[in-house]
Amino acid sequence: MSSPDIGSDHADWRPSGTPDVLRIRAAMLRDTRSFFAERRVTEVQTPVLGTTTVTDPQIESLIVHGSRRYLQTSPEYHMKRLLAAGASSIYQIGPVFRAGERGRWHNPEFTMLEWYRLGFDAMRLMDEVADLVDVLLGHATYRRRSYAEIIRRRFGVAVDAHDACLETARGLGLARDAGIEDAHDLLLAEAIGTGRGQRLFVTDFPPQQAALARIGANGMAERFELVVDGIEVANGYHELRDADELESRMGADNRRRRAVGRPEVAADQRLLAAQRQGLPDCAGVAVGFDRLVALRLGVADIGETMAFDWDRA
């Protein structure tokens, strides 16, 4: 079936990004590489195709036909193996892939900038993320607010009052059979989605949403997100080092995957072995580069920042 706006003359051969946009994108890539060169962070390239992939319950990987390999959803696992093997601070800019994520702010193939800083904690890495975003989008002020505070200010409910959170999320149209994780996701998405003209770091995520961040002394995950103009652009952790805890979280991910009928994903034994060897104390962050370009340009569709978006690729 072909889209109605695409005739037999393949009018969709044209790029989705204009030459001017692609020049700005190229300049932003150059500025990013200069930023890290000045700070002596080394650029690396890790495989786009891997034999394993992430266990995240809400991220689906694409499998390349005939290879039984996964297109990587982020370079995280490979980069952590480099760190465990003695690499210094490293960064990577490259394509990543997530099945089924398509919308104005999502393209199943997108460009991720990811970096790891030895000896940094979440606070110090947030400062560096702000420095980079200042370079790419121009200077602005940044607010830091905890996950719980954002939800409380917007909806007047405590994040650990699960019944109240579920009730509020149902008021926004969430189905009655949805669980607390879905309710939290919806409340946060609603609360940050209206922050035009703001740069906001969301900090102190609930421990159920720690992903690969360590749990801090206050019982909250040392995880942060940067939201610019209501759009999530970065997700970072003071990285979890404990291999047993990592294995147990991967198991928990798979229990959640099973519960919602998603395929289970085998835990990456090489990552576990690397972390048993020892991941240095570090913080890492992933940035959606296309979204930064869109925010710089003031466009509301990341397809316009790419040479060819998903529908034209």
């Binding site: 809400q58 991220i59 089924g100 919308g103 949403q209 997100e225």
Partner: peptide, 12 residues
């Protein structure tokens, strides 16, 4: 109709 998804969260 708009696709909304936190990076690590549920897609709506």
């Amino acid at each position: 109709s708009e696709f909304v998804k936190p990076g690590k969260g549920q897609a709506f």
